[in-house]
Design a protein around this nucleic acid. Structure first.
Lengths: 236, 236
DNA sequence: GCATTCAGGATTGTATACAGTTCTAAATTC
DNA sequence: GAATTTAGAACTGTATACAATCCTGAATGC
């Protein structure tokens, strides 16, 4: 039984709101209002907000308060590039450090999750499944810091991935799942050869191939936010 | 005039205490005692502690409180590897993105700081000087996230670098300063050729060459902490 | 003697009050 | 009418009180 604190709940909730643009990018967060809405007092909420600042979801200015951070295309690109930095080095390390036993288990994991991967139509599950694969490799690097950084990056990119996946049709989606799956298999093979340079190249390509998708997704997300705004203006 | 909040002050202070092992690794932090010591109440202190958790200096367990994180050799290695991940990718990006004008300014910066670099005997200044060089390159990558991550890593490694520098004699120290300076010049040259792969290799080598120094420094740091402990025991 | 229970103290978790600052908008001046 | 000033409302920053939880060690039973 995992003990989850109230603050953790507030973090989840607020992160969710930031991700789903219930808090608009750049807007100031009203602590009193938000605390009331989430059913807690300001003290624990502020703790939650502080941690979200550190995670990169919010910003903070003394005397002004907390602001929802904008997720513009430039930042998305930055985040994807940061992922490349982390994951390329992680797989390089994994090539020399992962034990044969670990790679065997990793292979089994890949086989076991394959059916889920292809049939899974729930977008959130699919995104988490993909994240898990990449986190697994980070873990094989035996470097806790790289893992930590990747977890953070995932948390911030997750929304973009979701928007992207949601925006495409089922047939196209299962097609892409298949493509990605075979890419994952190639990555496993590269790991097995233990050639760090080759593995690094493959990983780099795999992540970079998702950039345009991602920035495209952001455009859509922005449309989601700002169209309602325009409508508001027209109503005034 | 920069407005610096009370919480910021508490962060600085507490980080300093964690870094200098005034808070022992693994030990629980007594909020009441620490808040009294730092002249503030628990509320802002807890905000500060929360941010330090996010920075990686402390850990937190629900119901238990905040703990000073251990800085063992394994973690130092992890941090240096993470630096490699970030900085290698940063310089790769800098090779394609830095404008000629930027590189000219960078060269001028290198010339301007050279005299300081060699004459500077204050350890803290020397460490910051070296950090600045690396941050500069991260900035040339035009990627805010990589910069952010490197800043964080620097903050956590800084202490190790200081211990290391302090532990060597002046003549040896100025010798190393010279070595490092020429390494920095080579990095600039690599940037000017705009060959990402070459630049990446040079950067990797430059950072990796400091690992053993670093872990050695940690050993010394640990001696610093635990010898007094032993003495305490003997006094009991 | 060893494990277990339980009370008391210590410490963390949260709410709330109030002080200090910033923002807003109406009033004033040119 | 535009710019400036200035209350006052709204909000953030911090202290403190109290509730909830955890930890310690002595008492109890086996």
């Amino acid at each position: 039984m995992k003990k989850t604190s109230n603050v953790d709940r507030l973090i989840e909730k607020t992160r969710g709101m930031a991700i789903n643009f219930e808090l608009k990018p750049g807007s100031r967060i009203n602590e009193t209002a938000l605390s009331r809405e989430l059913g807690a007092s300001r003290t624990p909420l502020r703790e939650a907000l502080n941690r979200l600042v550190a995670e990169g979801f919010l910003t903070f200015q003394t005397g002004k308060g907390f602001f929802c951070r904008a997720l513009d295309p430039k930042r998305i690109m930055d985040l994807y590039e940061a992922r490349v930095a982390i994951e390329v080095e992680a797989i390089r390390l994994a090539c020399t450090r992962a034990t044969d036993a670990e790679l065997t288990v990793f292979g089994a994991y890949l086989n076991a999750t394959e059916p889920d991967y292809l049939n899974k139509m729930d977008v959130s599950d699919a995104v988490h499944g993909d994240e898990d694969f990449h986190l697994y490799i980070a873990r094989l690097s035996h470097n806790d810091e790289l893992l930590r950084m990747l977890e953070n990056l995932n948390g911030r990119i997750r929304f973009v991935r979701s928007v992207n996946l949601k925006s495409i049709h089922d047939t196209e989606r299962s097609l892409r799942a298949q493509t990605r799956l075979s890419a994952h298999r190639r990555i496993l093979e590269a790991l097995l050869t233990r050639d760090g340079d080759v593995a690094a190249d493959i990983m780099r390509g795999h992540i970079e191939r998702r950039w345009e998708e991602a920035t495209e997704a952001v455009q859509k997300a922005y449309a989601q936010i700002y169209v309602p705004d325009e409508m508001q203006k027209e109503m005034t």
